[in-house]
Amino acid sequence: MSIKIKKITRNKMSFKQRIYLFYISLGMLRTLKHFFKNLLNTKNIDFLEYPEQKPTDITSRYRGLHRLTKNEDGELKCVACDMCATACPAKCIFIMASEVESKKEKAPIKFSIDMLECVYCGLCVEACPKDAIRMDSGIYTKTGFDRQSFVRDIVELSNTKGGF
């Protein structure tokens, strides 16, 4: 059995086509048009002064920063089952459990989420059998100066209130 190879000849592009000069100039013209339009008429530019003004077009399905929920007694609902950490594709959730003397058998003594690694997929929320973790905090951004400030621990996660 022989394999037939078909050779395809390519036509040479002219110098004008190779440097894309026409298309580059079209893009620059469009950019300059928008620039001068906005420069001369600044009153029609929509902007939001973020920390003072919150966005109004956020739906209830928006995934904000994580929070841990509490039951009526003020205890965390989390039973440290490790389901959220198992479901997380980014492996950014770390839980250390200990035994407790209350109704539940285990509770987390360490619970942290590395927000720089999180992809905000929501699989941790879906995997939790106790509805202990949610992404409805209403906090849209997290800022910091070093990597450690983006790791949210159990204290910060449990003190965050729901925003929607």
Rank of each mutant, 00 (worst) to 15 (best):
S98G: 12
S98F: 10
K77V: 15
E72N: 06
I58T: 04
K77G: 08
H34T: 05
E72I: 06
K43V: 08
F35E: 13
F36L: 15
T69V: 14
G64C: 13
T69R: 09
G64Q: 02
P51Q: 04
N38Y: 15
L76S: 14
S60K: 13
K37S: 07
P89F: 15
E49Q: 06
Y62M: 05
D46P: 05
Y50R: 02
F94R: 07
K70Y: 02
E49S: 08
R63N: 07
I45T: 14
C78E: 01
E99M: 11
N71P: 05
L76A: 14
R63V: 11
L48D: 01
K43N: 10
C78D: 01
H34P: 00
D46W: 00
A85F: 04
F36M: 13
E101V: 11
C84A: 08
A80M: 07
L76N: 10
Y62H: 14
C92K: 03
P55F: 06
A97S: 14
E75S: 00
K43I: 07
K54I: 00
A85Y: 03
D82K: 15
C81R: 11
D57S: 09
N41F: 03
F94W: 05
A80E: 01
E49C: 02
K43D: 13
D46R: 04
T86K: 08
T42P: 04
R63K: 14
L32V: 15
Y62V: 06
N44G: 12
R61M: 09
C78N: 02
Q53I: 05
N41I: 01
H34N: 11
K33I: 15
V79E: 09
L39T: 09
L76Q: 07
K43C: 04
I45C: 12
Q53A: 03
L32E: 03
T86Q: 09
E101T: 12
C78P: 02
M96C: 08
I95V: 14
E52S: 05
G74T: 10
L76E: 10
I93N: 01
L32F: 13
A85K: 11
R61V: 10
F35I: 14
H66Q: 09
K77R: 13
T59S: 14
P55Y: 07
Y62D: 00
K33D: 12
V100P: 05
I95A: 01
A87T: 04
I95C: 10
H34V: 06
D46C: 03
E75R: 06
H34A: 10
I45K: 07
F36K: 02
K54Y: 13
K43Q: 11
T86M: 06
K91I: 13
D46A: 09
L39E: 08
T69C: 08
K70F: 06
K54F: 12
D82H: 15
F35W: 10
N44W: 03
D82A: 13
E49M: 02
E99D: 11
I93Y: 01
E52P: 00
G64F: 15
S98E: 15
T59P: 06
L65C: 00
L32K: 02
T42M: 06
L48I: 12
V79R: 09
L76C: 12
K91G: 10
K70W: 02
T56L: 15
G64R: 09
H34G: 03
I58H: 10
R63T: 10
P55A: 08
R63S: 06
L39A: 08
P89S: 05
I93W: 01
M83Q: 13
A80D: 01
F94K: 11
S60Y: 04
D73L: 09
L32A: 15
F47I: 03
L48K: 03
D73F: 07
E52N: 07
